[in-house]
Design a protein around this nucleic acid. Structure first.
Length: 816
DNA sequence: GCAGCCCTATTACCT
DNA sequence: ACAGGTAATAGGGCTGCG
């Protein structure tokens, strides 16, 4: 796609040459806009090159949207028609050429003084003769500003400014307020200013059940800063008025750029707001003396500061199954502790009420904040890079779902090539066929190589120019340049010019390769390395999400054949690879979507890889080698032994969050014995002993807990199930569960269906456990899943006596 | 009334 | 609220059974 850009005429900027103009370089922290009467002002909260906190106000940028004209319409006639009607906020209309899904369209750019009136105007205009539709009236003013001026959150810019006598309330919060005299100009520089970071966590107290902000006080607030300051605020006489005042004071005094927490977007800020209102305190923790408010994608906004809730980044760590603060901190090695203080929510009242134990609660709270600071240390680089890459402000790039992050990146790219931004629209969900999975050859295999296509879907989209703007619908004439036709589904895509996705993906892949090359020359601990490494991770996230995005019905650029074609070419690619491998007499053991597991024969593999590269133009290479690998009959589940002696467990119970640890631990040990020692007999013995341990109470209570997510409100479930019933019991105790929370339950002795025997683990204890259930439904199935591959029957595992090798004897054994 | 079968709901995983 | 493909368990309805 030809990149043609009309260079900065800046028709939307009302440029007034000023006196006392200065040049400043600034790093953009947060952005918001204010309406002064009907005129928008864009506020950029920033840090300048000298480390001063400055607010730069741009009053000179006007919002606009586009009218797309019908093919035969005359722009001037349409403009005249509009002028006849009363649209007082329209300041300018100009005919222009744009592209829409790759096709040139006639359009009118409509400038509006008041950004918030635009959707209304756009709707009203639709009825006018010659107008096809209106677009881009649904972009927020602040995003419009960022996109049009190439302003990048968490990036450096240069700008001409003029000192401004600001209102007192603003002046107290920053070192200086300026008025923008030119558009900011982006300066690529990965260096970051030294940010002031404040982390906090809190503990609420209720005599029974979940604390309710209307009734129950906050009793401990723990604060820490990246300057090493720490403070524990402890309520006196269960009255939280003073500690909330102290929190506000502390924040004002430290004046953080970032406020970080865990669960703050969904809980803490709302709770504090309600408590503050109750006490008549102003919760002024931002830089403009307003209170926290919920905004875009559900993030809590603190004007002038960046509020980050690290829980929003938990999705980036799929290895952590139960996303508690402790687990995430431990996973990231965020905090060094001899022994962590752990207190269940249900036990908090007991700790608070007991003066001796109260100090433990305060320590727990202090450790929580320390964990938050540690997570910050590990994750902030990534958040900053994601923000600057996709162009969403740092305070809500984390709350934006993957689809929206991808879309904002695309939106910025579309602007650069004059593509109009399609509207979001409701569509029916129609699934399509995805990747191919072939059944594994069950059993143990020695020396197996896993070959992976490098970024298969992105590269397929590049190779076949698959894109919303290159799609040739059925019935449309084939373009001169010719088309690529997808296998099976027969969707066509023009070969030329390069499509939107091809351009974007090529760029992303190239950028990542460049970064990785630079990383090789840097010291891994250096700030530059960390920032760049975070950058390449952010690039990878967006690259990998692109294919999924194309098949998402919520996507602005959704065109089903695009996703469907990419998937079809994927299937074709892997099928060809398997065929070729077989032709080379390279035994294929398993394949899933973009990978093939083959016998490790390097010369044949090399040949395969070269042949694929030559015929398909895609890169496939060994990703890892397993010394030994075990498959059951199931797809997507296996265990491999790596050369370094580690086990790579995929899909099996061990890696699932919804099996009790008592079963997972056993299965892991069984796999270890089998893969390392190749002894089914030893594994069987181990299982039998283990079962005895379970029966005799040698396994800790916590290992019996089963965790399952509550995906909807308890009433909405069609069938009764253990975790939902357990959640009901919790609720009876006043302990609420929010949608998406994990319910931890155990199965206790009793009658009837399983759901009747499920109890929240906090409400039961060791002696209640139905060990029979755990043995027959957790421990044995998990072990048998593996051991049946070696001819060992499930029933054999129940035997308490020495194993018998002979089946007749085994059947004589009694099963208890 | 219930064992056995089959289908559905549900969850979490893999690429 | 990025996609589809898959395994697995428990619930629940239905059938057949003198």
């Amino acid at each position: 796609m030809a990149v043609k850009k009309v260079k900065n005429v800046l028709p939307n900027r009302l440029c007034v040459p000023g006196r006392r103009q200065l040049k400043r370089t600034f790093w953009l922290l947060d952005i918001n806009y204010e309406l002064r009467g009907d005129k928008p002002e864009l506020w950029m909260w920033s840090i300048d090159a000298t480390g001063k906190r400055v607010l730069i106000i741009d009053k000179n940028y006007q919002d606009y949207f586009y009218i797309v004209l019908k093919e035969n319409a005359n722009p001037e006639t349409v403009i005249k028609q509009i002028q006849k009607t009363e649209f007082p906020y329209i300041t300018k209309m100009e005919p222009t050429e744009k592209k829409y899904f790759g096709k040139s369209v006639k359009a009118i750019k409509v400038c509006c003084q008041n950004p918030e009136i635009m959707p209304k105007y756009a709707k009203a205009l639709q009825t006018i003769e010659g107008i096809q539709e209106c677009l881009e009236d649904d972009l927020r003013y602040s995003m419009r500003y960022l996109i049009d001026n190439s302003v990048v959150p968490c990036g450096w810019h240069e700008i001409d400014i003029e000192a401004q006598e600001s209102e007192q309330k603003v002046k107290t919060q920053v070192d200086a307020v300026y008025e923008a005299k030119t558009a900011p100009k982006y300066i690529p520089d990965q260096k970051q200013p030294k940010l002031r970071i404040l982390g906090f966590s809190m503990i609420c107290y209720s005599t029974k059940g979940t604390a309710k902000p209307d009734e129950d006080p906050v009793v401990v607030i723990s604060i820490a800063t990246n300057n090493g300051e720490q403070k524990q605020l402890v309520a006196e006489d269960n009255n939280d008025k003073n500690i909330i005042i102290s929190l506000v004071k502390f924040i004002k005094k430290f004046d953080p750029d970032l406020i970080v927490g865990f669960g703050t977007n969904s809980h803490d800020w709302r709770y504090l707001t309600t408590r503050a209102e109750k006490h008549g305190i102003n919760l002024y923790v931002d830089r403009t003396n307003t209170t926290p408010h919920t905004s875009v994608y559900g993030h809590v906004s603190l004007t002038g500061r960046v509020n980050i809730d690290w829980y929003d980044y938990a999705d980036e760590l799929p290895e952590v199954k139960l996303k508690t603060l402790e687990n995430i901190a431990d996973y990231l090695d965020a905090i060094k502790l001899e022994k962590r203080t752990l207190i269940d929510e249900a036990d908090i009242p007991a700790y608070w009420e007991n003066k001796q134990k109260r100090s433990i609660l305060v320590k727990y709270s202090e450790e929580n904040t320390a964990s938050i600071m540690g997570i910050s240390d590990a994750m902030l680089d990534f958040a900053v890079q994601l923000s600057s890459l996709v162009g969403l402000p740092l305070d809500y790039v984390g709350t934006a779902a993957v689809g929206f992050r991808t879309e904002w990146y695309l939106t910025r790219e579309a602007y650069k090539i004059d593509e109009l931004i399609p509207k979001r629209q409701e569509r029916p969900y129609i699934p399509y066929t995805g990747g191919t999975v072939i059944a594994p050859k069950p059993g143990m295999h020695e020396d197996v190589a896993v070959l992976d296509f490098k970024a298969m879907y992105p590269n397929i989209m590049i190779t076949y120019n698959i894109s919303p703007d290159t799609y040739v619908p059925p019935g449309d004439q084939e373009p001169k340049s010719g088309v690529y036709t997808a296998p099976e589904v027969n969707h066509r895509f023009r070969k030329e010019p390069p499509g939107f996705y091809k351009t974007v993906l090529t760029h992303l892949i190239q950028v990542r390769d460049e970064i990785r090359l630079r990383l090789k020359k840097l010291k891994p601990k250096s700030a530059e390395y960390r920032a760049l490494d975070a950058r390449q991770k952010a690039v990878k996230v967006i690259t990998n999400a692109a294919y999924g995005y194309t098949g998402w019905i919520g996507a602005r650029w959704y065109i089903k054949p695009v996703a469907e074609a990419a998937a079809a070419w994927g299937r074709d690619t892997i099928q060809n690879t398997i065929k070729l491998a077989e032709k080379l007499d390279l035994q294929v053991i398993y394949s899933d979507t973009d990978s093939v597991f083959v016998k490790n024969e390097p010369s044949k593999i090399e040949k395969l890889s070269q042949e694929i590269e030559k015929t398909l133009g895609l890169e496939i290479k060994p990703d890892k080698i397993y010394t030994r690998i075990l498959f059951t009959e199931a797809k997507k589940r296996y265990c491999g032994l790596l050369p370094n002696g580690e086990l790579d467990i995929v899909g099996l119970e061990v890696v699932r969050g919804d099996w009790a640890a008592v079963a997972k631990n056993l299965q892991e040990r069984v796999l270890e014995i089998l893969l390392k020692e190749k002894s089914p007999q030893k594994a069987t013995d181990y299982v039998r002993e283990y079962i005895m341990d379970v029966k005799t109470g040698k396994v800790p209570y916590r290992e019996f807990v089963i965790w399952k997510t509550l995906t909807k409100a308890p009433e909405e479930y069609a069938v009764k199930s253990p975790h939902v019933e357990a959640a009901r019991l919790l609720k009876k105790e006043g302990l609420d569960l929010t949608l998406g929370d994990k319910m931890g339950y155990v199965i206790v002795k009793g009658e009837g269906k399983l759901y009747a025997k499920a109890k929240p683990y906090v409400l039961a204890s060791e002696k209640d456990l139905d060990t029979e259930y755990y043995i027959t439904n957790q421990v044995v199935p998990a072990a048998a899943r593996i051991l049946t591959m070696f001819g060992i029957k499930e029933e054999e595992l129940y035997s308490t006596k020495k194993p018998k090798t002979n089946l007749t004897e085994f059947f004589a054994e009694s099963r208890e």
